[in-house]
Design a protein around this nucleic acid. Sequence first.
DNA 1: CTGAAAGCGCTTACAG
DNA 2: CTGAAAGCGCTTACAG
Lengths: 342, 342
Amino acid sequence: MPTIKDVALECGVSINTVSSVLNNKKGEVSAETSRRVLEVVRRLGYRPNAAARGMTGKRSYTIGIADRYSTLDAPDQYKAQILEPLTHAVRSAKYDVLYYSGHPEKIGGFPAFLDGRSEGLVCFTGSIPDEEIAAIKQSGLPIVFIAEPQAQDIRQSSAYVDVENEKGGFLATSHLISLGHKRIGMIQGFGVSGNLDRLAGYRRALDMAGIPFNESLLYPEIAWEQSPEDAVQTMLRQPVDERPTAIFCFNDVLALATMTAAQQAGIAVPEELSIIGFDDLPTAAVANPTLTTVRQPLSQIGKRAVEILIGIIEGQIPSDYHEILEPELVVRGSTAVARIFN
Amino acid sequence: MPTIKDVALECGVSINTVSSVLNNKKGEVSAETSRRVLEVVRRLGYRPNAAARGMTGKRSYTIGIADRYSTLDAPDQYKAQILEPLTHAVRSAKYDVLYYSGHPEKIGGFPAFLDGRSEGLVCFTGSIPDEEIAAIKQSGLPIVFIAEPQAQDIRQSSAYVDVENEKGGFLATSHLISLGHKRIGMIQGFGVSGNLDRLAGYRRALDMAGIPFNESLLYPEIAWEQSPEDAVQTMLRQPVDERPTAIFCFNDVLALATMTAAQQAGIAVPEELSIIGFDDLPTAAVANPTLTTVRQPLSQIGKRAVEILIGIIEGQIPSDYHEILEPELVVRGSTAVARIFN
DNA sequence: CTGAAAGCGCTTACAG
DNA sequence: CTGAAAGCGCTTACAG
C-alpha cells in the first residue's frame, strides 16, 4: 500500500502539502498543486492509513458493539433482531460499525472494547460481566447500554435503552389472570435487573387481582436451561391442585422450550397449560401453537441506541440519558381460558 | 485513557518492559517485574491502543465487510441472511468484524475499505462499482467476493463464493416447463455476471424442451424496480396468446413485487400466472401465496466466505479459490399447472 | 502558499 | 533481565 511519502515524492512536494490537500485545508494549498496531488493520489490508489490518523487524534467515526463471545453462541434471535436495525442506523449516520468478537483471551483480561478504535460503544448489558462494565464506564468512553445495567450507581449515571419491564410483567400476568388462571407460575431470569422488574410486574398483577403470591410457583431459569424436560417434569410432579395452570416465562426462548417439553410430556398447550413469553422473537409467530408473548420493540431499541450514542458523542445528548419503550401484549395461540380445577 | 507511559512510570520501569510483559515475551522479563506490571495495568485499566499497535505491524484480527452504502438502503433480507452467519463465523474465529458504512463522500473518492484497519475483506460484489473492485484487488489485500465479479480477469484471479447460477436458472425454468408452460417470461437482473448465468440456464431449459427462445418475453429489471405495477400492466397488455403464462424472476424481491402487482391487476397467481423467484428469502415462505423459488444457501455462503478469507489471510488457501454451492428448487404455492391456452 | 520538526502510542531490534 | 533509540504513517502548529 502506498503511503503519504510515496505520494509526496511522486509529486515533488512535502508530505504536509499532501496532508493539507487531503484534509481540505482551504486556502492553504494552491489550486494547481492540489490538483496535481489529487491526481497522483488517484493514480497510486493511495488511502490514508486509519491507524496513523487515529494516532493524531483524528475522528474514526466508528461505533463499537460490545458483546461477549461465547463458544456456546447459538444463533441468537434477540440480538439479531436488534443488530440489524442498529447496523443500519450506524451506516445511515455514515459511521462504521466495529463488532468486537469480545473474546476474553485476546489481551490480558481487559475488554478489547477499550482499544481506542471506537468513538463510542453499544453494550449488550446481559452478556458483559459486571467488572467489565465497570471498567468500560470508568474509561469515560461514550456508551449506551441495551437493557439497563444491574448496579444502581452505573445505571443512574449511564445512558440506556430498555423496555418497561415491570409493565411487561404486569401485562403478561394480567392476561393470564383475565383468562381465569389463579395458579400462575413464573420462570425467572437472572443477571439483568430488568428480570427483577418483570417479576415485580408479575407480583403487582397478582396483588391487584387479590391472588396471594406463592413462592413455590417461582422457577429459576437455570434448571430450565440445562434441561427443560426435567424442569417441566418436576413442575408437573406437583399435585394437580398445586401445580400452575399457566406460566409466564421471562423470555421467548425459554417459553418455547417449555412448550416443547410440556408437549413431549403429554401436556396440551394451551388446553392444560397456558404459556406466555417475553420478547416476541420471529419464531414466536410460527411456533405450534403460536406463542402469546409480550413484545419488545427490538428494532426500535437497536435504532434508538445508535441515535442516542451518536448524540452523546456529538455532545447533544447527556451521557445519562435513558429511554424506556413500551411493551405490548401479543395474544396468540399458547394461552387459553383456564379449564383445570382451580 | 492511560497509556503505556503511565504504566511504566507507575511501575518505575521503562515502556519496553511493559510492552514485553503485555506481549508475552517469555524469559525476557523477570516473574516479579511481570507481576508488578500486570498489577498496575489492571489497576489503571490500561488497554494497548489498537491504532498504535497497528502502526508497528501488529495484526489487528479484523475482517472488513465491503458494502456500498446507499440512502435508499431499505432493509435487505438477502444481505441480512448472509451477514448473520458471516458475523457469527468471524467471531467464532476470534476476529473482529468491521462493517464499513461505505459512504463514498468520506475521503476523496477512495474506498475506505483500504484504510488499513482490516486484514481482509468480504466484498458484496453487486453493490460495489467495478472501478472500486479493481482498486481493492490491486491493493493486494486478501479478499473474498460474495457472488462472482463481473470482469473476467478479476474473477479468475479472485476468491469468491457463489451459487451455481446457471443451474439455478435451469431448475426454475424446467420446473415451469414441467407444469406445462410454454410461454415463459424472465425478468432479468443486471450488474452481476451471475444474472447472465441465470439467463443462460433459462435458455438451456427452453432448448432442451424444444421451446424456441423468444426475446420479447425477456423483461429488464429496471422497469420493474421503478414501478412493478406499470411493468405488469405492460406485460399483460400483450395479446393473451403472446403474453407469458409463467415468469421466472431473477430474485425473490422482484418476484414478490410482481406477484403483488399482478394480484392488484386482477390476475390470479398461480391460476393465471405462475411466478418463481430466486434466493428463498424468509419472506418467500410467508407470502400469499407462498413463493416457489430457487434456494441459495445464503447462510452457508456467509459462513464459507469467512472461512475462506481467514484461510487466505493465514496462508492456507490460495487467493483465487472459488466455491460454487448448489441451488435447490423449492416448490410452493405461486406456481401451478398451465391452464391458459398455449 | 510550502516545508522542517515534533509528537501521537506502541513495538522491535540492539546495547548493556 | 532491563533501558535508550528508531520508526510505523499521519497531522498539526510553526517558520519561512
